[in-house]
Amino acid sequence: MKDVYSQIQENPRFQELVAKRERFAWILSALMLGLYLVFIFLIAFVPHLLGTRISPDSPITWGIPMGIGLILSAFVLTGIYVRRANGEFDRLNKAILDEVQK
């Protein structure tokens, strides 16, 4: 098995897959963590900002759309990742495996 693994490791398409997928995963992770940290720091340091009404005649405050938006963004980001990973990345992965197993 060992040479199969080194064979894959040396395959430029494998290196391309790894580079692409890692980069994509880290960017999305940074985005999610960044959004969450901004939210936590807003709460910790400027709580009144989230308590401001979105318009003078609406009881809804900025915190509501931001909070709901954060929940939705978690869902959307996982969706974006799964779409690309299960499509493009898995096709590339299959091509790499086919190459060594034929």
């Binding site: 999305l28 992770s29 999610m32 939210f39 405050t61 915190g63 909070g67 978690a74 996982t78 990742y81």
Partner: peptide
């Protein structure tokens, strides 16, 4: 009121990270 939403968000944001870095 609003504090409930803050807490629930804390529980949710770990999941995308688990997907991106650990799951597969």
């Amino acid at each position: 009121g609003y504090d409930g939403l803050i807490y629930s968000i804390g529980f949710l944001v770990g999941w995308p990270i688990i997907l991106f870095l650990i799951a597969e």
